[in-house]
């Protein structure tokens, strides 16, 4: 299926869903998969190239030479791009496998679902870019997320990050996954919902943990 059909999922999800449900064999998913992985690699690399997320390197600007400073940033960018790659693989394949275990639906169809999910995630990240460079907002205080509201109630960074990881995009993804799975599977409604919500909660907690340990992790590792 071509890339623009991914957009169809957003615009006309129901018709598409019907087709998928009744399709015996899902077509070639590899092209889209590769495109998404590549896109993720590039987008994350691009974001890092702009400087997003490199706040940990900034303090060394007065300590090291400008050449070394820039080299540090280069490897940071590489690391970030690799993360983008790994991230894509996890979302596309690992999460699909999780749902496979839960619903026993055909794996390829689940991958299709995750492709749509991942595309939305990439869109969200792309939106983060101008928010960062023009409004000075980091990811967890995007106006699409609950991070801003959380900031008004607390100063604790990890709480802000937790709520910041719940965004409109995330909610749409939950809605989409629920719709998809419910349509295709005969599993009880509540089980589907629990599976989805559990997954997402787990991901928010993971993100929050990483945020919390950002600096400490680096110090511990090296």
């Amino acid at each position: 299926m071509k890339r623009n059909t991914l957009l169809d999922w957003v615009i006309k999800p129901d018709t598409h869903l019907e087709r998928v449900k009744h399709a015996e064999h899902v077509g070639n998913i590899w092209r889209t998969t590769i495109l998404l992985i590549l896109a993720s690699f590039l987008i994350y690399g691009w974001m890092a190239g702009i400087g997003m997320g490199s706040a940990l390197i900034s303090p060394s600007i007065t300590d090291v030479s400008s050449l070394e400073y820039n080299t540090d940033k280069f490897w940071f960018v590489i690391g970030r791009a690799i993360f983008g790659l790994i991230f894509a693989i996890i979302i596309l394949f690992l999460i699909s496998y999780y749902f496979y275990l839960v619903t026993e639906l055909p794996y390829r169809k689940l991958v299709l679902m995750q492709q749509v999910v991942f595309m939305m995630m990439l869109v969200e990240r792309i939106i983060w870019i101008p928010l960062y460079t023009y409004v000075g907002l980091d990811w967890y205080v995007s106006p699409f997320s609950f991070g801003i509201i959380a900031s008004f109630f607390t100063d604790i960074h990890w709480i802000e990050a937790f709520f910041g990881s719940i965004s409109l995009f995330q909610l749409w993804i939950i809605y989409f996954q629920a719709k998809f799975l419910l349509k295709l599977s005969i599993l009880e409604k509540y089980k589907v919902w629990i599976a989805i919500i559990l997954l997402h909660l787990f991901s928010y907690v993971l993100v929050t943990l990483l945020t919390y340990f950002d600096k400490n992790l680096m110090d511990w590792w090296f």
Partner: peptide, 16 residues
């Protein structure tokens, strides 16, 4: 050889 690459690569992997 010249750069402190490991630290910053890992940083890129884990930063959020």
């Amino acid at each position: 050889d010249n750069a402190n690459w490991q630290e910053h690569l890992v940083m890129g992997l884990f930063v959020r």
